[in-house]
Structure formats: C-alpha cells, structure tokens
C-alpha cells in the first residue's frame, strides 16, 4: 500500500475512533451528553494532533528520532508558570482566574520563552542544535528545581490546586480555551504544511541543505516557532504530556513509509489524535476507569523511548 493510501486509511481510523467515542452507549439526554463528549473529543484530537505534528517537525530539525519538544523543557516551564501563579495569586485567586484568560497567558508565555531561547541560541551558532537541546535540558532541570522550591512554600490547599492542574487532564477543558486553541492549532498546522518541502531539504542537514539553496537558519527558526506554537497550545490546554509526541511519531515512522513531510506531518498529527481518542474511549467506556489517561500514555511512551534507545544501541 502506498504512503498516500495509508494516510487515507489512517484518516478513516481517526473518523471511526471519533464516531465510536461519541456514539458508544449513548443515552438520553442525547444533546447534552453529545455536547459534553464532543467537547472532550475536540480536546483529545487537538492535543494529539498538536503533539504528533510538533514532534515530527522537531525531530527533523534536530535530526534525531529520539527527541521530543518536551526535552527542551516545555513541561518544566508550564509547571513553573503554574507554581508562580499559585504563589502570587494564592490558591483561591488562581482558581478564580477566567480559564480562557489563563490559557492565553500560559500559551503566550510558553511561546515567548521558547522563541527567546531558540532565537538566542540560534544567533550564537545556528549549526549547533545539540547545544540548543542540551540548554533546554539544563533549563528544564533549573525550572523543575525552582518549581519544587516554590511548591514547598505553598500551604496544603494551594498545593492541591496546583497538583490538579499540573497533571494532564482531558476532563475539565474550558470551551473558551478550546476555541482559541482550535484557531491557533489550525494556523500552526497550516504553517507546518507550508514548510513541508523545505523540511524535506532540511532533513539532509545544514551543509547539504544550504548547498541545495535552502535558507536553513530561517527554516529552522520558522520550524521551531511552529513547534513552540503547537506545544504551547497542547500544554496550556490540558497540561504536559511528554511522551505522547514520541509515541505518535514512532508509530507514524512505522506506518507511513515516506520521507515527505507533506505526508509525515499529517500522519503524526492523526496518530496522536487516534492514540488519545482510542485510549480515552477504552479507559472511559470499556474499562470504566477514572484514572488519568496521560499516566498510561507516559508509561507506553517511556517504553517506546527505551525500545528506540536499545534498538539504536543494537544497530
């Protein structure tokens, strides 16, 4: 089967998963239950698509299939921001913030921080993406340390509020935040698709890509901006899900045998969405479990990460 046909099949699986999630065991009042389910489905699909697409683009830019945007410290920055807000506003003040406003603030802070970091590092030496990644890892450790320190200053009720928002949750997504996220996600995905031919060339590495006439540094910066936007949307919407992108990207590499980003980006996005929708469906409807899906995804993603590391060592 060609890569294009496989992508179409993947689209069909996603539609099927969405219908299953919406319609399984549907009871009256239909309208109310459907609207609740549709809202949660939209959050699942958006977070999955954003994580999958962001990881596909990021892996091309750093030329490494083991890395995810989470490695440059997005999750740590998100938890640091939440801790800072709870510290400054108190548990009650934080809980009273309008969800749409909080989402916008977090998304903008995450994007601004990521672009400031990438922009600064790229000006220092565009060819040194490994330095960028390592700086992200170090900054992540620093931010986690600062968050840990901040959390020790909170009283137990404030800490409980913080814990609730620091673990990825698809259950309590604000509808205002969903609409803003949908617009931001569509724009970021459109930008990623417009960059697809340039990303095909960027995959050759800096010297080869530049000798093929690609404005490599501009492409990398643009790509990182798109990744920042996608991860910021996903993280600010439901919280950090570090290994979902890796899981989606690894499955996309395995199922869509193509080097073309015009196929790989949608494949990563659709697989991310399929994983979340099917995972949540099995959790909620089949197993009737209330546990956080993100915990299972992090576990599975972690196993995939280890498998990839071991596979690479074996090679």
């Amino acid at each position: 089967m060609t890569a294009e046909r496989r992508l179409l099949a993947l689209g069909a699986v996603l539609v099927l998963a969405a219908v299953l999630y919406l319609a399984w065991n549907l009871r009256a009042p239909y309208g109310y239950i459907l609207s609740l389910r549709a809202q949660r489905l939209a959050a699942l699909m958006m977070v999955g698509a954003a994580s999958g697409a962001a990881t596909m683009v990021f892996q091309t830019l750093v030329r490494n299939r083991l890395l995810t945007p989470g490695i440059v410290g997005f999750d740590a920055l998100f938890i640091f921001l939440q801790t800072l807000l709870v510290l400054l506003l108190g548990g009650v003040g934080f809980a009273l913030l309008p969800p749409g406003g909080l989402f916008l603030l977090e998304a903008i802070c995450l994007m601004a921080a990521a672009l400031a970091l990438f922009g600064w590092l790229l000006r220092k030496g565009a060819e040194d993406l490994i330095r960028l990644v390592l700086t992200g890892v170090v900054l992540g450790v620093l931010l986690r340390g600062l968050s840990g320190f901040g959390q020790r200053l909170l009283d137990p009720s404030e800490y409980a509020v913080l814990q609730q928002v620091s673990i990825a949750s698809f259950g309590n997504v604000d509808s205002g935040a969903l609409a803003i996220s949908a617009v931001a996600l569509m724009l970021a995905l459109a930008a990623a698709m417009a960059m697809a031919p340039a990303l095909d060339v960027a995959a050759f590495g800096r010297s080869s890509a530049r000798s093929l006439g690609l404005a490599y540094d501009r492409t990398v910066l643009g790509g990182l901006a798109v990744v920042s936007a996608l991860v910021a949307v996903s993280t600010a919407l439901v919280g950090p899900v570090i290994f979902l992108g890796l899981l989606a990207a690894s499955l996309a590499h395995a199922t869509i045998p193509s080097w073309r980003h015009a196929l790989r980006i949608p494949a990563g996005a659709m697989l991310g969405a399929v994983i979340l929708v099917l995972g949540q469906f099995v959790f909620e409807r089949v197993l009737a479990l209330q546990s956080a899906l993100s915990v299972v995804i992090e576990f599975a993603g972690g196993l995939v990460f280890l498998a990839l590391v071991l596979q690479r060592r074996a090679q």
């Binding site: 050759f204 590495g205 010297s207 000798s211 006439g213 045998p257 080097w259």
Partner: peptide, 26 residues
C-alpha cells in the same frame, strides 16, 4: 543569497546526510 549560490555551485560533503526511505531517483 542561498539560492543564487546553489545555482552556481553544487557541493557533496564528506558525510552527506542520508534521509531514511529515500530512493536513489528521489
């Protein structure tokens, strides 16, 4: 500019990046 350079010179580096799944024609 990069493109003008690429129309004057082609370069094969010592270890050119290999993109997985790329066929020879591609």
């Amino acid at each position: 500019p990069e493109r003008e350079r690429a129309l004057l010179l082609s370069l094969l580096t010592q270890s050119p990046g290999a993109v997985p799944r790329l066929s020879v024609r591609e």
